[in-house]
Design a binder for these strands. Structure first.
Lengths: 207, 207, 207, 207
DNA sequence: AATGAATGAGCCTTCATTCAT
DNA sequence: GATGAATGAAGGCTCATTCAT
């Protein structure tokens, strides 16, 4: 799979990957144009389809490529030895912010990719999403000291509430960034807000 | 506005509305085909554009139509006299489930419509969304007895966490329903799960 | 022919005629929209086709109507008793300028109508043009004292040169008027220029 | 610009150019159908737009192509060393007749193109026309011996009358040719008529 | 490997005209 | 007489994919 592509000079690989990521992130799967991609990557139309057989395969390849790029670094830095749940989550948020600063295009692409509604890719994307969550939920929560949480409520549900809270926060931040054209993410401010929610959740959900 | 359309025999109106809702809900704004709509509605191409001068107007009409259909009934049944926040939310969830059972297509369409990214309709949809939230957030929270909430954390943030929790629950339920083709929403089961989260949130966020 | 139309109340007749003239003059035969005409005239679509059976018949009717309106007055004022060719032509130019000031829309419409290239009406318009020229060339030149022209050249050709000169002048004036949006016809100035050409032609073509 | 098109085999280029010229000349810009053009040229819909991104670009290309084809040859043969105005004009008429015999379609197309009223191309066509006249009016009249013209009238106006006369003659000849389907231009006869007008104008406008 | 010409179904929209009421 | 709903062909243009070179 993709062996043809991997045998190409790395510099050209990069040109193609960057051009494709940019186009897909900007316009979504359906509206993204292979024409634009080859123009930006400065390769011929035929070559793209020589490497990737069709638009869908190209997209799916990019998703894997980007996910791996980011996930690898994420798990490398992830504080598996931190037993306090909130400290762990805080660290996780910080790592994500760092990554999104370092690889803004890749980050944006992945983010959009999993929200893309295009019928052609939906089944595959949902399958990927399921696999990833299955795998990671366990990893991320492993070794946490859950004894700090209050006993009078279902722990699993509390964890869900916390996870959802942070997902929604990040969604809102993203939406704001998209709506206001000039709006650059203010990581400092985001971090502070995250911290405030942490405090609340800790206050209410810890013993 | 839309007077031409409203003078048509109701049966034909329905055929058109249903065909259009179905097509837009299934494929999203951009990919939805007016060709498919007229075929399904069994009218001529020209007639659709006689009623709605273009694809965009048709879509915007449907959004208004669907929103009104649902919102009217929702606010009619909404327990504005209930002062307990969680009772109110519980009631709200039940009403929504009823409505989504009664008007599954309309419900689905509206849901997707506000998440549609198509450039052509984005500005209008965002305006609508802003208007609706401005109006409704106040309505729904009016008259609630907030004194029951614990005083040691920011009330606004707690309310956000609770809202987010229910939004995410509903999203998950929806996703499940979409993934498993034969899967019908089991409203009884959903209600029970909602109830469990209510208990947790009440336990943790009330004094 | 057109009996249905002539039995309508004159006020409605006017509304239709004016609306149609305006639309055709503005956009030419092909691009003119019957939809716009009925909207402007405030009648129903069907009624227009009840009176005129199709777009072409409507157009041809208007040509006849406008031509008659203008021609009648033109020939009434035409100085058939003036025997000097140039005086006669000068008078003719003045009458035309008066008419074009009084009936600007009608004048403009007729002018454009005979230059319209639309395939659907070309044959009829050319036939009309031929009939009119056949008829009028004789009328207009009747009773002129041709003895004043020099004898060493073919009289018919001289007359052609003179006619062409004035046609081209009027074309140029029209083109200028169309190109410069705010440009109103300056009849005084046009008249002066005409006068200068008259002098030259008289000097060169009279004995 | 148009590089894609120029790399095609000449035979196919010709097919496309001829099909397009024919369609535009026959129906004018607005009514000309790209569908007809591709059908006649026996190429696919997409290919036409691969070469010329637009109907408009195609048209503008044809105008340039046709103008160049004709103008180059015209100016090559133009007798710039002839100082007598009428001899020069006579020569010019002959060259034009030769060209219109050799490239009848191209000639016709160019002629119609500059009279086309279609809003989409008007600005460009007027710009082209202005550029061409600016350039050519000077060229064509350069080096003429104007001392032969009579002194008692304005020279500029005389030149206008002469130019107009020949333009109108050519228009009339063209109209005749269009009206009578089988009518082939009889260049011998036209030349004779031109000659007669020359004699008259020389007699009247030279000293 | 690499090119880019070539395909053709599909897109939304307009329009003169007809016809049941 | 008067209405305007209904038709459907035709318009220009886009796009992922194929294939001869």
């Amino acid at each position: 799979m993709y062996t043809k592509f991997f045998n190409v000079e790395p510099e050209k690989q990069d040109r193609i990957i960057n051009a494709a990521i940019k186009e897909f992130a900007q316009k979504g799967y359906d509206k993204a144009s292979t024409n634009e991609i080859v123009k930006e990557a400065e390769i011929s139309k035929g070559l793209l389809f020589h490497y990737f057989k069709n638009k869908k395969q190209l997209f799916l390849f990019l998703v894997d490529y980007c996910y791996e790029t980011i996930a690898e670094e994420f798990y490398q830095k992830f504080p598996f030895d931190e037993v306090d749940f909130f400290n762990r989550m805080r660290q996780s948020v910080i790592i994500k912010m760092e990554l999104s600063e370092r690889y803004p295009d890749i980050f944006k692409f992945i983010q959009e990719a999993f929200m893309d509604d295009a019928a052609e890719i939906k089944p595959e994307m949902e399958k990927k999403l399921r696999e990833m969550t299955d795998l990671n939920v366990n990893k991320i929560y492993e070794g946490v000291d859950y004894s700090k949480f209050r006993d009078d409520v279902d722990l699993q549900k509390i964890l869900k509430i916390i996870t959802w809270t942070f997902e929604k926060m990040s969604d809102e931040e993203l939406t704001k960034a998209k709506l206001i054209p000039g709006h650059e993410m203010d990581y400092k401010k985001i971090y502070n807000e995250v911290e405030e929610y942490f405090e609340i959740l800790k206050t209410c959900f810890y013993k």
